[in-house]
Simulated assay, not measured.
Amino acid sequence: MFDYIMQYQSEIWHAIGETFMMVGISIAAALVLGLPVGTLLYLCRKGQMYENRVLFAILNILVNVVRSFPFLLLVVFLIPFTRFVVGTAIGTLAASVPLSIMAIAYYSRLVEQSLLEVPKGVIEAASSMGASTLQMIVKFLYVEARSGLMLGLTTSTISFISYSTVMGIVGGGGIGDFAIRYGYQRFETEIMIFTIIIMLILVQAIQYTGSFMARVLDKR
């Protein structure tokens, strides 16, 4: 196995870099867009302070549709949109577009669930102190739900890594695509085993780090 690793070490590092790029872009999209969408879902749902059934229904349907879409079909379905956004439908950057859309929908639902665990008394306290909507969200809701938000981001990141393994269909590359092309299609079982070990180590490291940070952030 060591001989195979030395033979393909440059390709392996390149594949790992592609995976990090795809997952990194999707995480950024989840934080920049998924977090606000999840917050809106929470604020606009029935019984909340800013109840808006129309907006909630629209966001809820969009999130459900994206999350229920088989990811491989979503990648193919979004090829025209991907080409419009980045100018091409092939490559790692192009592969990040459908991955980011899935990340936004996936994390927004986890954000909504985390915020629902915040006691309503926190919102009432924020309102009684005259906090603005932005202050209520940032200084009260997010602070109370920060542990759950971190765990949700950890779970999402691991899911994004799993999704990234199929991005070879649009030339996205990544460690999963490397395992298929060099390990499975060339019948080099050692390469397949090595890439699986890399994925296991990566996922375990992310899970441990995320769980540790969630415990540190949890002040309850």
Rank of each mutant, 00 (worst) to 15 (best):
M102L: 10
L55D: 07
T133S: 10
F77W: 15
G87S: 05
I206C: 03
T155D: 05
S100N: 09
V75H: 04
V66F: 13
L115V: 10
G130K: 11
I137C: 04
T165N: 08
L59H: 09
V54I: 14
F84V: 07
S68N: 15
I197P: 04
Q7T: 10
V97K: 00
D218C: 08
V85W: 05
L33E: 01
K120T: 10
T82H: 05
T155A: 02
I206H: 02
T195F: 05
R220H: 10
T39M: 06
G17S: 08
I158R: 01
L153E: 06
G210D: 08
A214I: 05
E190D: 12
I193K: 01
V76W: 02
A57K: 12
Y182N: 10
A103D: 06
A15C: 07
I191Y: 06
F84L: 14
Y182I: 10
L55Q: 11
T154V: 07
L149Y: 09
T92P: 01
V75A: 02
G17R: 05
L202Y: 08
V166W: 04
E18H: 00
A145R: 09
R220I: 08
F71P: 10
Q9Y: 12
I180N: 07
E124L: 07
T195R: 06
L115Q: 09
V86N: 06
V86A: 03
I158H: 00
K139T: 09
M22N: 04
E18W: 00
F160S: 03
K46N: 09
I169Q: 09
L110E: 02
Q207N: 13
F212Q: 02
I158N: 01
V216M: 10
E144S: 15
I175H: 01
R220K: 13
A30W: 09
Y107E: 01
V37M: 12
I158W: 01
T165A: 15
K139M: 14
P119Y: 11
S96T: 03
M21D: 00
G47C: 07
I198Y: 03
M1L: 06
M167E: 04
I58D: 03
F71Q: 05
I191W: 08
W13A: 05
S96G: 04
L93N: 08
S100K: 11
M1A: 11
H14P: 00
G173F: 04
S159T: 11
L99W: 08
G121E: 12
E112G: 08
M192T: 13
E18A: 08
H14R: 13
G168C: 03
I161W: 00
Y107G: 02
T157M: 09
S156C: 15
V97S: 03
Y163R: 06
T92Q: 00
I104V: 15
G176A: 01
I193Q: 07
I104S: 07
I158C: 03
Y107L: 04
T19W: 05
D3V: 09
K139W: 12
T133E: 12
A30L: 02
S68Q: 08
S26M: 00
F81K: 04
I58A: 11
T19Y: 05
L217W: 12
L59F: 15
T39V: 12
